[in-house]
Amino acid sequence: MSSHISIRPPSASDEALFLAAARRSQALHRPWTHAPATPVEFRAYMERMQQPENCAHMVCYGDTESIAGVINVTNIVMGSFRSGYLGYYVFAGYERQGFMRAGLLATVRHAFKVLKLHRLEANIQPANTASIALVASCGFLKEGYSPRYLKIAGRWRDHERWAITAKQ
């Protein structure tokens, strides 16, 4: 199924479809992440992703307008570092079907070939085994453990640090 996946930047016209998918996915995302679920949150997300240090991708299924998930490359630093951080989530109904793997592989290619990054890092809560399996299947390597790394849902949470670098 995942061979019919493409990635593209989000647009304002995605708002209604995106918000419906985010709302129906809230239980799936808890406690790992929070997708924008209101018009105000969606517009703030769009504004944030238009900044030069961020690059957002919708993971789309086939020739339809279906959005299977989202992959963001954020806090991009150029110069001698050339790195960015990944954030991603799948929408309910598309999980465990290979959509996010195909989307992540496409995002990694885009980050290394188009954005000219050297490194991508994903920080994942240790109990989020599906996310860890996803990055491991895409060639990311575990680099370490960061206690109380990110504040999610009002709590500082530990994360594993996974990364991939461009092949020279």
Rank of each mutant, 00 (worst) to 15 (best):
E65H: 13
T38H: 04
K113R: 11
H34D: 08
R155D: 12
S146V: 02
P126G: 10
F18P: 00
A106L: 09
Q51G: 07
W156V: 01
D63H: 13
S146A: 15
R48P: 00
R155G: 02
L28R: 13
K151V: 15
S13C: 01
E41C: 08
S2W: 06
K167T: 08
P126V: 09
A127N: 10
S2Y: 08
W162E: 00
R101E: 14
L115E: 10
M58I: 14
F18N: 00
C55K: 06
L141S: 09
L104W: 09
N54E: 11
V70I: 12
Q26K: 13
K116F: 05
A106R: 05
I124W: 01
L134K: 08
I67W: 01
S146P: 00
A37F: 03
S11D: 09
R30H: 14
R30N: 09
H159V: 01
A102P: 04
P39G: 12
V40Q: 11
I71T: 07
A106W: 00
S80T: 14
L115Y: 04
D14H: 03
A136D: 11
I71S: 02
P126Q: 06
I132Y: 00
A68M: 11
A68T: 11
P10T: 03
K142A: 06
R24L: 10
L104N: 07
E53V: 14
G84Q: 05
A12C: 11
S83G: 15
A68Q: 10
M58K: 07
A127E: 15
A20K: 15
W162H: 03
F99I: 14
H57P: 04
A130H: 04
G139P: 04
T33C: 11
F91L: 08
A20I: 07
R161H: 08
Y45C: 03
F99K: 12
R24P: 03
Y85F: 15
A127F: 07
E41H: 11
A12T: 14
A166W: 02
M1H: 14
A37Y: 03
V108Q: 03
L141F: 01
C138F: 09
L120A: 13
K113L: 12
W32K: 09
T38G: 05
G69M: 10
I132Q: 06
S2Q: 11
V135C: 01
A163C: 09
I124S: 04
E47M: 07
R109E: 14
F81K: 14
A127T: 13
F140Y: 13
Q125K: 06
H159C: 01
R148S: 12
A16H: 06
Y45S: 04
A56D: 12
I67T: 02
I5F: 06
V90Y: 05
E65P: 08
K142Y: 00
G144C: 12
L105M: 14
Q168N: 15
A163T: 01
